[in-house]
């Protein structure tokens, strides 16, 4: 939400989170090195760096993957979600150090191009136990690079939200490649038991949280509203908290109905910035505020306050007693709709 682009969108809270990320990464690397050297003093520095940063990147990737579902299940996790972009870039840096050192140690000291060597030094592609697992890590690193390098609002605006989202959904492809990379590496005894343990526990947590969230959201989408003369019955006023919203699915689109200052307004649930769920945000300073990055919209017309230009679709509401009804036909984005007074 701005009239020019900033190098990094920092504020006091984000700086604090970034310091926590940097400190945690440093602490992990030091602890990993100390523990490794205590138990295996002969470990070379290159191997230590490769393993420390590889396992760090895996842990960070798991945290990144569970932040979304956790924030949907419990709003206390939302502050971590705000900082996911910086966490992602930090994770890529850890993965890059792991990959860079690996390529240098195993592929850069011969007379073959190191990247070509990654793909051809072991041609046993048909084998499970001797599969060239480093190729999978390299491909995952390429995906993480694209994601990290496009983690800026410039790309969201210029690639289009749809393309940007699709690019960033590739994180699941990268995750699958990394799982295969570690497990196939384990067959060749180049992966520590510790890393495999993290991966197994992490995989179970990631999958479980995604399934629970999908089940919860599936219930919202499956709820069928009762129709009355073209209006859909949604809920009682008392079911919505003050300055908060309730999300409903209307004509296959999610709509957020906000309750504020004795009024009710309905807007499309998807934020124009990164597709955040507006209905999980709240009214701050009279504006609907996206829980992901704080983009704001006026509840009466779905427009960002001037000079900003983002707009979302609005919907007409009516009250019968305490019951809220919505007209399922959306108005054009940014259309002024008289709030429903109660």
């Amino acid at each position: 939400m701005g009239l020019d682009y900033q190098l990094v969108l920092w504020n006091k809270h984000k700086k604090t989170y970034d310091k926590i990320i940097a400190f945690s990464m440093l602490l992990y690397i030091i602890l990993f090195a100390v523990i490794t050297l205590v138990f295996n003093a002969e470990t070379s520095i290159e191997t230590l760096v490769i393993r420390a940063f590889g396992s760090l990147a895996i842990i960070m990737l798991h945290i990144i993957l569970v932040i979304g579902p956790l924030a949907r299940l419990n709003s206390n996790f939302l502050p971590i979600l705000y900082n996911r972009r910086h966490l992602g870039v930090s994770m890529f840096i850890a993965a890059l150090i792991h990959g860079g050192f690996s390529i240098f140690q195993f592929h850069a000291l011969g007379d073959v191009n190191p990247i070509y060597s990654v793909f051809t030094s072991n041609m046993d592609y048909a084998s499970l136990t001797n599969f060239p697992f480093q190729v999978l890590g390299f491909l995952a690193l390429l995906i993480l690079f694209v994601m990290a390098s496009t983690s800026h609002d410039f790309f969201l605006g210029n690639l289009s939200a749809k393309v940007w989202k699709r690019l960033h959904m590739l994180v699941y492809v990268a995750y699958a490649l990394i799982i295969a990379h570690v497990f196939l590496g384990a067959f060749q005894q180049e992966t520590s038991v510790f890393t495999i343990g993290i991966l197994v526990i992490g995989f179970v947590i990631v999958v479980s949280l995604h399934l629970i969230t999908a089940f919860k959201e599936g219930k919202i989408d499956a709820a069928k509203a009762e129709e009355k003369e073209g209006w859909l019955k949604v809920c009682d006023i008392s079911e919505i908290e003050e300055d908060r919203a309730k999300i409903f699915t209307v004509e296959n689109e999610r709509v957020a109905i906000f309750k504020y200052d004795g009024k009710l307004s309905a807007i499309h649930n998807v934020c124009k910035h990164q597709g955040g769920p507006l209905g999980e945000g709240k009214i701050i300073d009279g504006c609907i505020t996206c829980p992901w990055h704080g983009y704001q919209y006026l509840p009466g017309n779905g427009q960002s306050p001037p000079p900003f230009t983002e707009k979302v679709a609005t919907y007409a509401l009516k009250l019968q007693g305490e019951m809220i009804y919505i007209n399922p036909d959306a108005f054009n984005e940014g259309t002024e709709v008289e709030p429903c007074n109660y």
């Binding site: 701005g2 009239l3 020019d4 682009y5 900033q6 190098l7 690079f145 694209v146 390098s149 496009t150 983690s151 800026h152 410039f154 790309f155 605006g157 210029n158 690639l159 393309v163 690019l167």
Partner: peptide, 25 residues
Amino acid sequence: DPLMQDTKKRVRFLLFPGVAATWPF
């Protein structure tokens, strides 16, 4: 992107890797 007109030059350097990665778009 017209917004880049008023954006500091160093932002362009930050965006360089992403621009190189997504040039077809």
